[in-house]
Design a protein around this nucleic acid. Sequence first.
DNA 1: TTATGATTCAAACGTCCGTTTGGTTTTGGC
DNA 2: GCCAAAACCAAACGGACGTTTGAATCATAA
Lengths: 206, 206
Amino acid sequence: MNSPHFSTKERILGAAEELFARNGFAGASLRELTATAKVNLAAVNYHFGSKDNLVNEVFRRRLDELSAQRLESLKIVLAKPEPTLEDILAAFIHPALLLSLDKTGGATFVRVLARAYAEHNERLRKFLSENYGHVLKEFAAAFGAQLQHLGKEELYWRIDIIAGALTYAMADFGVIKRREAMSEKIHRERAAEHLIRFAAAGLRAE
Amino acid sequence: MNSPHFSTKERILGAAEELFARNGFAGASLRELTATAKVNLAAVNYHFGSKDNLVNEVFRRRLDELSAQRLESLKIVLAKPEPTLEDILAAFIHPALLLSLDKTGGATFVRVLARAYAEHNERLRKFLSENYGHVLKEFAAAFGAQLQHLGKEELYWRIDIIAGALTYAMADFGVIKRREAMSEKIHRERAAEHLIRFAAAGLRAE
DNA sequence: TTATGATTCAAACGTCCGTTTGGTTTTGGC
DNA sequence: GCCAAAACCAAACGGACGTTTGAATCATAA
């Protein structure tokens, strides 16, 4: 991860992902972070301007790709003659599943994402909303076309809850440890399937 | 909440619950906390020994009652001739639902609980496991009696996931704001119903 | 080779943190 | 009303924090 052939910026981002996942944004200090990344303490402010902005960039690095994959999957699904709710949900969930199974930090990042949810951090929310809000909007439109009886707000927060449940499910939470890394993939795929069924029922409710 | 007729300890616990929910454990400083509670800075260390221990006591105050209610509900359910998985799940989930609807800080506490999940804090986990692990154990035994084909570990982490999903669902997460406080109660009750169905299916799976 | 901009570095900045101290005030039993 | 214990308080402690500085080092194009 932090091998010397990675650039300083990349080593910082990698270490930040690890430490933010383990200790939270406030709990991870730049001193520990730069020590982990094997860079000078001043490097974070030199390359990223501030710790706050480093947090943003940690998200940007992963969410740019995740959002692109979601939108691409959505586009494919909507091209079908009669796309189902489950199809649209899969377009949203499967890219996150792939990310959580990624071996180069993606799994760690999913935990960072879950932290962001728990933190209710206003500054971070604004950043995420400004930069990735359009993805939620496109999915909301796709769901809305299938659920015309639902109000716009109602629809939005249902999608939001699904995003939260997904994040949580992928983030390896809980008190008890898993048995083997082997079944991790299968477990996550199962979780995604359950989630899709659950979310589809939730969306159709009322 | 922090009216003068509450004791210093109670005012500290109330303010701690609020600030831990809003800023996290590391993010909430004792200076802001004691200012909110309108007590002297030294009062936290005088009454609770340390900030870490204050965190423990915030949990103890609510979880003692929550655990007792869960165990009582479980006892009643197991006295029935043929208790279903849904019955047992309801015994676990309904007390948390009641807590989340409580108007004197319970709703805030549920968010603190969700933070604890996200934090992966080893010290806090140990405290929760030592003090409330027996509740999970009793429920695991009840579920196990109905699901004898499941391995013990498998069963445990399924329960754990349910606890996580419940916590998340009750914690008011998500990016989008709710419409009215009025429908809050109904929404939560619906969420609990969905959760019970979802969890029952998850437990029966495979 | 030299000049220039980008990068790294050790050191220090001021601020805020959790905690401790020592003294003052309040409380409750006699 | 007295006194010991409990509670409260202002002030200070050392340490860790994010950030800034200015000089040293590196890379690279002229």
